[in-house]
Amino acid sequence: MTASEPRPPGLRARKKAQTRRTIQEQALRLFLAKGYENTTVEEIAAAAEVSHMTFFRHFPTKEAVVETDDYDPMILQLIAERPEEEDTLTALHRALAQGLRTVYATDREALLIRTRLVLRTPALRARVWENQHTTEEMLARALASRRPDQSELATRVLTAAALAALTTALTLWVDSEGTENLPALVDQAFTTLQGHNR
């Protein structure tokens, strides 16, 4: 590459994503080894070979290392790609299931560690409702754009019920220490929900 040729598009974004992933991987490793409460931001930064300031450029708090993921844009894209004739609950189920299968195939262990930390660490568990509320609003907007004829109440209720089904499946998966098949649990949870929706 000559000096006059442009840098490949997205190189900076890829490097940023890699740094973020490295920080998160090292944080999860330390949380497993030392416990969440006993691990400091300074230790995570040192393990990831980044500065304290670089850590905070990627994650505003220690909690964010566990809570932050890149799944939302993928789920929104999958919702947008669902057939128009699908009802709200079916579209949400199939989008979430497809996204989850992708994550499960590539990041199963990290997902298990993060979910276990969230469910079993009081400081993180206290933030679940706030984070779930944000996700619910995001998904409800995406679903409303598919079905503008559906009332806001119906969309919000179905979205909240779907997230409750997903959270229940995740909880059972963590309780089994990951021995259960998470995609199958999610499908069972939605089958139960859709059975009561008829």
Rank of each mutant, 00 (worst) to 15 (best):
Met1Asp: 05
Thr2Glu: 13
Pro6Thr: 08
Pro6Asn: 00
Pro6Lys: 02
Pro9Ser: 11
Gly10Gln: 11
Gly10Tyr: 06
Gly10Glu: 11
Leu11Pro: 05
Ala13Ser: 14
Ala13Pro: 03
Lys15Val: 12
Lys15Thr: 14
Ala17Cys: 07
Ala17Ser: 12
Gln18Asp: 14
Arg21Cys: 02
Thr22Ala: 13
Gln24Phe: 05
Glu25Pro: 03
Gln26Phe: 08
Ala27Ile: 11
Leu28Ala: 04
Leu28Lys: 01
Arg29Phe: 11
Ala33Gln: 15
Tyr36Asp: 01
Asn38Val: 00
Asn38Trp: 00
Thr40Ser: 14
Glu43Leu: 06
Ile44His: 01
Ala47Thr: 00
Ala48Ile: 02
Glu49Pro: 07
Glu49Gln: 15
Val50Lys: 03
His52Trp: 14
Met53Tyr: 02
Phe55Pro: 02
Phe55Arg: 00
Phe56Glu: 11
Phe56Val: 09
Arg57Trp: 04
Phe59Tyr: 15
Pro60Cys: 09
Thr61Val: 12
Lys62Glu: 09
Glu63Arg: 08
Val65Gln: 10
Tyr71Ser: 13
Asp72Ala: 10
Pro73Gln: 07
Met74Asp: 03
Ile75Arg: 01
Ile75Glu: 06
Leu76Trp: 05
Gln77Cys: 06
Ile79Cys: 02
Ile79Val: 10
Ile79Thr: 00
Pro83Met: 08
Glu85Phe: 03
Glu85Asp: 13
Glu85Val: 05
Glu86Tyr: 05
Glu86Ile: 04
Thr88Pro: 01
Thr90Phe: 04
Thr90Trp: 05
Thr90Met: 10
Leu92Ile: 07
Leu96Met: 13
Gly99Glu: 04
Arg101Leu: 15
Thr102Met: 12
Val103Gly: 02
Ala105Gly: 12
Ala105Cys: 00
Thr106Leu: 12
Thr106Glu: 15
Arg108Ser: 00
Glu109Leu: 13
Ala110Met: 09
Leu111Pro: 01
Leu111Cys: 07
Ile113Lys: 11
Arg114Gln: 15
Thr115Gly: 05
Leu117Trp: 03
Val118Pro: 01
Val118Met: 09
Arg120Lys: 10
Pro122Gly: 05
Ala126Ile: 10
Glu130Ala: 10
Asn131Leu: 07
Thr135Lys: 12
Arg141Phe: 11
Leu143Glu: 00
Ala144Pro: 01
Ser145Asn: 12
Pro148Asn: 05
Pro148Ile: 00
Pro148Trp: 04
Gln150Val: 13
Glu152Lys: 13
Glu152His: 14
Leu153Phe: 13
Ala154His: 09
Arg156Phe: 07
Val157Trp: 11
Ala160Asn: 05
Ala162Val: 03
Leu163Arg: 14
Thr167Gln: 14
Thr168Glu: 06
Ala169Glu: 00
Ala169Asn: 03
Leu170Arg: 15
Leu172Tyr: 02
Trp173Tyr: 06
Asp175Phe: 02
Thr179Gln: 15
Glu180Lys: 11
Asn181Asp: 14
Asn181Trp: 08
Pro183Phe: 03
Ala184Leu: 14
Leu185Cys: 12
Val186Leu: 06
Asp187Phe: 06
Asp187Leu: 14
Ala189Pro: 01
Ala189Gln: 06
Thr192Ile: 10
Leu193Glu: 03
Gln194Ile: 03
Gly195Ala: 15
Gly195Trp: 06
His196Pro: 01
Asn197Cys: 10
Asn197Gln: 14
